[in-house]
């Protein structure tokens, strides 16, 4: 049942690209991920059928790019910027603190599905380094201590929400 609903979402995206060729593959993948949060195997197969591509080819493209993920993100998705400026100002310590608090590696989701962690190359706000982004809110000049505070805050928030 659940997968049916999800496939309908994929089909809805594909309707916007009725006669698309291969050059529409990446935009389609982006649209599907935007709606579902990740690319499920069913979605990849369905997209492949639509574009007349083998699922392996679709996976080949999807796994090449950093943007695409293949497991569901947590309720609170945390991005840690690891650009040069952030690194020089100590983002390694920030990342380590968050990993220790949430007990997950970058690219993973906590077992309860509340948090997921991602390392991004550069958010493009180097003047405010180090930077993390939680639920699309930017937090500037984050120290390990400040990161701990932010995570605790979201832990509380996600608990009360859920």
């Amino acid at each position: 049942m659940v997968s049916n609903v999800k496939l309908q979402e994929v089909n809805a995206v594909l309707e916007d690209y009725p006669t698309a060729g291969r050059d529409a593959l990446i935009p389609i993948l982006q649209q599907v991920q935007k709606r579902q949060g990740y690319l499920s195997p069913q979605a990849v197969i369905r997209i492949g059928e639509h574009l007349n591509l083998a699922p392996s080819k679709v996976y080949g493209v999807a796994t090449f790019y950093n943007q695409f993920r293949f497991s569901a993100p947590g309720q609170c998705h945390i991005q840690v910027c690891r650009g040069t400026a952030c690194h020089v100002k100590g983002s390694a310590g920030v990342l380590e603190t968050i990993q220790r608090l949430l007990k997950i590696e970058p690219g993973q989701t906590t077992r309860d599905g509340r948090f997921s962690l991602e390392v991004v190359a550069c958010i493009g706000a180097c003047g405010l380094a180090p930077l993390i982004c939680c639920e699309e809110n930017f937090h500037a000049q984050v120290s390990p201590a400040k990161a701990e505070k932010i995570i605790k805050q979201y832990q509380k928030k996600v608990t009360t929400d859920g």
Partner: peptide, 11 residues
Amino acid sequence: DEGDPGAFMDR
């Protein structure tokens, strides 16, 4: 596609 970490002029 400003991929260079530490550059944000295009943005």
